[in-house]
């Protein structure tokens, strides 16, 4: 049955993938179209790309998005991995496990707007104690880390669950210290899970809109916020140019990451 030819499967699949890419392709086409308004084809140009290179606001927003994604992913990966290790390697009582599972699963089963509201509440209360919680890049990073931690933990935990005890015991038999055991045995074994979790966290950060919308300040506009606020005036072709650049950059990044993980594994 598996080897049977099923042309309609291919047809639907290609159709679905076509639909997924149609918006991105349209954006790429309009990014080289020589007209500011209207959608008819007016000839090929790269002037939106040169204008983009000179547009401070857009570049600053793009930079903010990248800094936010990179910093929050790094923090969330460390915290999420620590959480997964702490849960897996320590003899927690059953009741504690139940409560902790509930806390970890909350970001998965609660819509992101509720997370955004929760963060707004937390920031407004914590602002009494420290200016660290004023809306800005700091609050954006805290917000993103909050929804990323759980996803990293879940991925790393599923990886930890597949490890067998014997490897640990063999290392111990050979007089490995706890540090050595972690550094040379456990860490290399969970690396694919950690990388997968980090990649997921990075993707979630780049794709997020709602939490950024609630947690951003006037000085920390990220790309999605910038785009959303300029929607009413209509988007300029520079935004299409930027989206195309980002898409190409991510495609290259994904392919590179895939190559690297294949080498590690």
């Amino acid at each position: 049955m598996k080897t049977q030819k099923r042309p309609w499967l291919a047809l639907i699949s290609v159709g679905v993938i076509f639909l997924l890419y149609l918006p991105s392709v349209a954006v790429a086409v309009f990014s080289v179209n020589d007209t500011k308004f209207g959608l008819s084809w007016k000839g090929f140009t790269l002037r939106w790309y040169t204008q983009l290179a000179n547009n401070e606001y857009i570049l600053q927003a793009a930079l903010n998005s990248l800094i936010l994604a990179a910093v929050s992913t790094a923090l969330a990966t460390i915290l999420g991995t620590a959480l997964a290790l702490g849960l897996d390697r320590a003899p927690w009582p059953k009741s504690a496990h139940k409560v902790i599972d509930l806390i970890i699963n909350l970001p998965v089963v609660v819509p992101d707007i509720i997370m955004a509201v929760a963060l707004t509440l937390a920031f407004s209360a914590l602002r009494f104690f420290s200016s660290l919680f004023d809306l800005g890049l700091g609050s954006l990073i805290i917000g993103h880390v909050t929804f990323q931690i759980s996803f990293v933990t879940l991925v790393v935990r599923s990886r930890l669950a597949t490890l067998n005890k014997e490897t640990d015991e063999a290392a111990r038999d050979l007089y490995a210290s706890s540090f050595y055991l972690f550094y040379r045995v456990t860490l290399p074994l969970i690396t694919p899970g950690v990388l997968a979790g980090a990649m997921m966290a990075f993707t979630l950060s780049l794709d997020d809109f709602i939490i950024s919308f609630f947690a951003h300040g006037p000085e920390s506009v990220t790309l999605p916020i910038f785009i959303y606020s300029s929607l009413k005036r209509g988007l300029s072709p520079e935004i299409y140019a930027l989206s195309t650049v980002m898409l190409l950059a991510t495609v290259i990044l994904v392919i590179a990451a895939e190559r690297i993980t294949r080498k590690i594994a």
């Binding site: 997924l20 918006p23 954006v27 780049l206 794709d207 790309l223 999605p224 785009i227 980002m246 991510t250």
Partner: peptide, 13 residues
């Protein structure tokens, strides 16, 4: 891959 373009941009597209 389409995931990596922000949802606001994709929707506007």
């Amino acid at each position: 891959i389409p995931f990596w373009t922000n949802v606001v941009v994709r929707t506007y597209a």
